[in-house]
Amino acid sequence: MKGLSFLTKEEYKKLTKKASNRSKILPDCLGAFVIGGGICVLGQALFDLYQSFGLDKKTAGTLMSVSLIFLSILFTGLGLYQKLANFGGAGTLVPITGFANAMSSPAIEFKPEGHVLGIGSNMFKIAGPVIVYGCFASVIYGVVLVICQYVSGVF
């Protein structure tokens, strides 16, 4: 065995991997499935409820999204969303509620730094890249669409 002074980074990487704990994939997936699925079921229930009030599909859908966003922010504010996420992992991240949490949690966190330099400039700290690259991807998509339409028009 090599002594500490002769150990290479690659060898230490192997040692670290051996010594580290691994995430428990099966329970993690199950947690994500239950929590993420639960959020989706709640969404569907709200959607059906709003439709039963006589709202059309589009309005009911919008109202359902708004309700989930509201609930996510409420849970974040009450300090419960993080606890749910620690159990549910990606299950709380993927639905629309994850995005609402990513916006509201920095808003709460940076309150001591004031409204402008605190909340205003830090609110998009986590969600910002998603918006930037989301917009960028939509531009690329638009250009590809225009080219495809032009090409199919020529032939």
């Binding site: 580290s20 704990n21 691994r22 995430s23 428990k24 974040t76 504010g77 300090g79 969303y81 993080q82 749910l84 996420a85 620690n86 992992g89 990606a90 709380t92 991240l93 994850g98 949490n101 990513a102 509201s104 949690s105 920095p106 709460i108 966190e109 940076f110 700290k125 986590i126």
Partner: peptide, 17 residues
Amino acid sequence: ERQFRFPLEYGGRRTPN
């Protein structure tokens, strides 16, 4: 947490290590 990681209420998962 504020200095090095995410906001406290952000729904991130802590890894076992």
